[in-house]
Amino acid sequence: MYEVNKTEPFWWGLFSLGGVVAALFVPIHIIMVGFLSAEAVGYHQMVALVGNPLIKLYLFTLVSLPLFHAAHRLRFALKDLGLKVAGGLLGVFLYGGAVFGTMVAAYIVATLP
């Protein structure tokens, strides 16, 4: 019979937080990195910014949460595209990737000058 799933709320919670972060902040960051002049987001000014622990926290959140968002969406999209057999493995691979990306992001952001 049916049984409450105790892990899905965790992944769904990260998915929706990541969705909010991506929706709020990613488009403007793409503009800044991709389309503004290199001086607008130049080295000295970036280094000055990342010295601020709040900016560090922001950058970590900005990268980490949307990774979980993507992992969750791709897991279900691929399932509906016919990768159903790989269901469990797919989850391990995608969420594992997001966890790994989060650890890398934490290391990079923490060791910023």
Partner: peptide, 23 residues
């Protein structure tokens, strides 16, 4: 809409790499 998450993730990984170069 679902695929958008993939492009967002790839962008953020590029962005993260750029941040690492600040060091």
């Amino acid at each position: 809409r679902e695929l958008s998450s993939f492009f967002i993730a790839v962008f953020l990984l590029i962005y993260l790499y750029g941040l690492s170069l600040l060091s």
